[in-house]
Design a protein around this nucleic acid. Structure first.
Lengths: 345, 345
DNA sequence: CTGAAAGCGCTTACAG
DNA sequence: CTGAAAGCGCTTACAG
């Protein structure tokens, strides 16, 4: 009759391993001053008992929470899925937990930050996509280390993709093909509190490249839509009202590019010949559907951001570090080029 | 020169209020055995000091975490925004925190549940939209109370909307207007791990009502798309290829209905006369755009679910409670009916 | 109604 | 390298 399966504590581990509980704690914290044999024995016992440390006790005893807060837009796109995977990979390895805070409203954000709730819960903050510092006069109201990812700010460690460069690469690339060039501009969320400029930068770079190539780009070549595959379908229909195949489309995002692909197929057009399509993001499924795209190492960016944060949490005091990633053009069938060897991140 | 603004503790509050720290704790926990004057004085001091209890200490001392986990689909739709608002409202009032766990993959879910991480962190679980019990042989591997919302299961407290009824109301309503009837079926996410049937139920009810009204519904009257406004635009174009105005469209969700509205306007059609559109969800903005819709009391559902969970956490042991909400038809200009008094939830 | 004390499961100097 | 002890900020019987 054991009572409600009480979790084993550090004390029980210590007893069974025949050591003091300080030693168990040292093993837990990777303290170097533990003999390898002792460590092994303790780990063994932990394994047997299915022991996991009580994070609340650690927090209260050690002052650290072993938790990192990730604040991200409340949109369930593949980009954030991948970003979280990258972040989580390095955090879990270091035995840190990850608390996700979807940015729903400014009021909620302030509550998180102000009332100390976040402060109590986490040892560091990872801000994705929104540079929230503007809301707080340049500095977030927290004494925890902060790292930005998918956005940048000179005052904080930042890990970001050069979206404008991606747009330029797209422009240079598509300008070489016969037929007119079109682009899809994806509307950013219009929430005043949370702004980002990702898609705008991509289009900006695209426009620059076309102009540099002597193919000035006008509003008529642009179609604006929300981020959705159906938006890509509408875009292609719109472009086909203005020009006959072959035509070349920069979709701005893989998700939208997928819609272009779907609609082309529905209309009986041959992708890669009648319609060339270029996506952006390099999501894993683009390989299956043969979509050319500007690959973005999202997982790597997330991992890098998490590493920078971990360093800060361990006391690193240097100047803010700006880590810039570059997108990589991957040619596949959707732009008519024979597929190359698969992309290795 | 105060050092890094140490947070005040219960001890400091006790001193300043001239009471023992047990009393402060009692105030914190709404224990009845505290004289009103004493309580007032303590609360005063807390206010002055900007004291907030350290949740980790409470957790470790009291065995409770004062945190509820909300597991929800990784999609940033307005529905979940509203649901979270409803949940949060009652939880915050009871001084509970809310930990959001987006359901990204089955692997992550199992990690949450298994490794005891969730178990340590929270006192109860709220599962939104997915009945995850199937993954675990009928019972979730947790000893914490569990409440489902936006889905149902006989073995757990469940709060849900009768989506099929909503579909039926929509069918009965639209069948009365002149002109053919169309419907938009929204694809559920195809993730095998996380399934829901919301939209399917709405269409099912719709079909039943039409058949009952002697207007059999065929596949030709159905357009399938992902959940997006652009999907609504495509749908309307599709319907207009099959019939001339006036026509009547059940959009299945407000977001998609919005696209129908947009496209009708773009085509110069008069909404409410040439095209009648009925949404589903009753999101706040539908009033502004004059969209008729089946209103769903999402916030109230979230609040109710949170209340049921709180009761369980306080020890309620009764049989699982099934709370069924009914959608309410709101007539506005998009179905040609003059707007009535605003809906009061 | 209220205070003093034990205890929650850990971490971290401090001695050995 | 390791043990014993103090302490983290609370909660909760236990006495008054």
């Amino acid at each position: 009759m054991r009572e409600k399966t009480k979790k084993p504590t550090i004390l029980e581990v210590a007893r069974r391993a025949g050591v003091g509980l300080g030693t168990v704690s040292r093993v837990l914290n990777n303290h170097p001053a533990v003999r390898p044999e002792t460590r092994a024995r303790v780990l063994q016992v932990m394994e047997e008992l299915g022991y996991t440390p009580n994070p609340h006790a650690r927090r209260i005893a050690g002052g650290r929470s072993y938790t990192v807060a990730v604040l991200l837009p409340f949109v369930g796109t593949e980009f954030y899925k991948r970003l979280l995977e990258g972040i989580e990979a390095v955090l879990l390895e270091k035995r840190y937990d990850l608390a996700i805070f979807p940015l729903l409203s400014r009021a909620r954000l302030e509550r998180y930050l102000k009332n100390g709730s976040l402060a109590y819960q986490t040892d560091g903050l990872l801000l994705a996509s929104y540079d929230l510092t503007e809301h707080f006069g340049g500095r977030l109201p927290t004494d925890r280390p902060v790292v930005l990812v998918d956005t940048r700010n000179e005052r904080y460690d930042s890990v970001y993709l050069d979206n404008r460069l991606g747009g330029r690469i797209a422009g240079e690339y598509l300008a070489r093909f016969p037929g007119p060039v079109f682009a899809i501009r994806i509307e950013e969320e219009t929430d005043q509190a949370f702004q980002k400029t990702t898609f705008r930068e991509r289009i900006q770079g695209f426009r620059e490249a076309l102009e540099a190539a002597g193919k000035p780009f006008t509003e008529r070549q642009l179609y604006t839509t929300r981020l959705s595959a159906e938006g890509g379908r509408l875009a292609l229909r719109h472009f086909l009202e203005q020009a006959s195949p072959p035509l070349n489309v920069f979709a701005g995002a893989d998700q939208v590019a997928l819609g272009v692909l779907e609609e082309a197929e529905r209309l009986g057009l041959t992708v890669g010949r009648d319609v060339r399509v270029l996506g952006f993001d390099g999501h894993p499924w683009t390989e299956e559907v043969g979509l050319s795209t500007l690959s973005q190492p999202v997982e790597a960016m997330g991992a890098r951001a998490a590493s920078l944060l971990l360093e800060r949490m361990e006391g690193y005091k240097g100047a803010p570090r700006q880590v810039r990633f570059e997108p990589l053009l991957i040619e596949r069938a959707s732009t008519g080029t024979p597929p190359k060897a698969p992309y290795l991140p």
